[in-house]
Design a protein around this nucleic acid. Structure first.
Lengths: 215, 215
DNA sequence: ATCTGGCGGTGACAAATGTCATAACGGGTG
DNA sequence: CACCCGTTATGACATTTGTCACCGCCAGAT
C-alpha cells in the first residue's frame, strides 16, 4: 500500500527537538524514534543553541518548547523562518496561553500543540507540518479567538515584565529609567485593561494570557 | 535474545506513570518501554486516580508528578505508603523546589528526581527505587539542607496560599474569616521571614521554595 | 500556681500604591 | 494642517499595604 517505488529523497523526515527539560526531551525523542519515517537528528536544551544545530544538522521539522533559557521558542521560530526557511517549526508548549498561539503563527511556526495532547498524535503533527500544513490545537484556537491580541501597549508590557523580575515600583522605575509616577500610570492602565485589582495580579493575568512576550 | 529460561517471578518491574501532561506521560512511557525489564502497567493524568489504578494494576513503582489536578504527587505518595505499601513512590517533578524534596521524603517517597535529569538515568532510578534504595537528585539535596524547613507558621502559610488565589488582602480576610488587620500582620511576618519586599514577592518566594504545600 | 514565650489578634500610624486631571512631545493618519 | 494615540511627566488625593506597640490565650517550664 505504501509506495516503495516512489524513491523520493524526502522519505525520512529529519527532526530537531528543543526542550530545556532533559528528561522530557529524551522521552519525546524515544517516542518519535518509534516511527520508522522519523529520525531525530539533534537535541538541544537552550533556545539560543537551536539555530546552530539547525544549520549543521538540516532538520525538516523543529519541535520547539516555548519556555527555554536563552531564547524562547517563538523567537526561535522567527529566526528559523528567516535564516533556515526549509526547516518548519512546530511549537510544543506546556501552557495553553492563548496569546502564545497567535504570536507563534505570526512568527512563522506552522504547528502549535500543548503538552497534554495525546502522545500518539505528535508524530502525525510532525508529518503534517513537514508537508507544509498548519496544525493547531483546536480548543486553544477557539480560546485564542475570543481572547484576541494583547490590549497592552508596548510600554505597559515592559513595566509588567520588569515588575515580575524586580519587586517594587521604585525598582521598576530605576530599571526602565522612568519616573515612579510614570510607572504607576502605566500600571494603572494595565490594571484597568486586565480587570485586575492590583499590579501583581495584572502581571499574573498578562502572563497567563501570553501577553508578556516581546513581539 | 532475551532470556526466556530465567523464569523468575520478579523479573519484570511493573510501573505506573502519573503526569497530567498526556504527551509527557506517553513519552516517558515509551522511553521506559525500551527497557526489557520494565513494563508500564498503568498511566493516569490525575492525582486522585492513582490509588484506584494502583490497587487494580499492582505496580512495583509509581512515577508521580508533583503538579497534578485532583491531588498533588506528594499527597499521593503518602496515600500509597499507607494503603498500597508494596508500591514504592518515585517523585518526578518539573521544578526543583527544595521544600518539595523534604516533604516528599516525609511522605514516604523513596525517590526524587527533577525533569531535567538525563533521560537515560530514569530507568536506573526506577530500578533502584524498586529495590528499596532511596534515589535523590544530589544538587537538590544540598540545596534542601541549606534551605531547611519552612520558617512560616501554619497561619502565615494559609494567608500566602489564599493570596495566590484571591487577589487582595480584603478577599483573603473574607476567605479565611479573619480581620483585615490580622491578615496584614501575618503578611508582614511572612515578608520579614522570606526577605521579600511586598506580599506578592513573599508569596512567590515561598512557592519557589516549596513552602506552600499543606503538610 | 506562676512564669514565659510563641502564636493569633486589634488598633494606630507611616509608607507605598492606585486613580485622576492635566500637559508637553512626537509620529501617524485623515 | 488638525487630530488622535502613545509616552512621559507632575501634583493632588484616596485607598491599600506594611509596621509596630500592645493585648489575650494556651502550653510547657519552673
Amino acid at each position: 500500500m505504501s509506495t516503495p517505488r516512489q524513491l523520493r529523497a524526502r522519505e525520512v523526515l529529519r527532526v530537531l527537538i528543543a526542550d530545556d527539560q532533559a528528561l522530557v526531551r529524551g522521552a519525546i525523542a524515544s517516542l518519535l524514534d518509534l516511527e520508522p519515517d522519523l529520525e531525530i537528528v539533534s537535541q538541544v536544551g537552550r533556545g539560543d543553541e537551536v539555530l546552530e544545530a539547525a544549520r549543521s544538522t538540516r532538520p525538516d521539522v523543529a519541535l520547539l518548547d516555548v519556555e527555554m533559557p536563552g531564547l524562547d521558542g517563538i523567537a526561535v521560530a522567527r529566526l528559523l523562518r528567516e535564516q533556515v526557511p526549509e526547516c518548519r517549526s512546530l511549537i510544543v508548549t506546556t501552557f495553553g496561553r492563548p496569546g502564545y498561539l497567535r504570536l507563534a503563527l505570526e512568527a512563522g511556526a506552522l504547528g502549535f500543540v500543548v503538552k497534554d495532547t495525546p502522545s500518539g498524535q505528535l508524530a502525525a503533527a510532525v508529518r503534517r507540518v513537514a508537508a507544509g500544513d498548519t496544525v493547531v490545537d483546536p480548543a486553544l484556537a477557539a480560546e485564542s479567538l475570543v481572547m484576541g491580541a494583547s490590549p497592552l501597549s508596548a510600554r505597559e508590557t515592559d513595566v509588567l515584565i520588569a515588575l515580575r523580575q524586580g519587586g517594587t515600583t521604585a525598582e521598576v522605575a530605576r530599571l526602565l529609567r522612568l519616573s515612579e509616577g510614570t510607572v504607576r500610570n502605566h500600571l494603572s492602565a494595565a490594571i484597568g485593561k486586565t480587570n485586575a485589582r492590583n499590579a501583581s495580579e495584572a502581571a499574573r493575568i498578562a502572563a497567563e494570557n501570553g501577553w508578556l512576550l516581546t513581539p
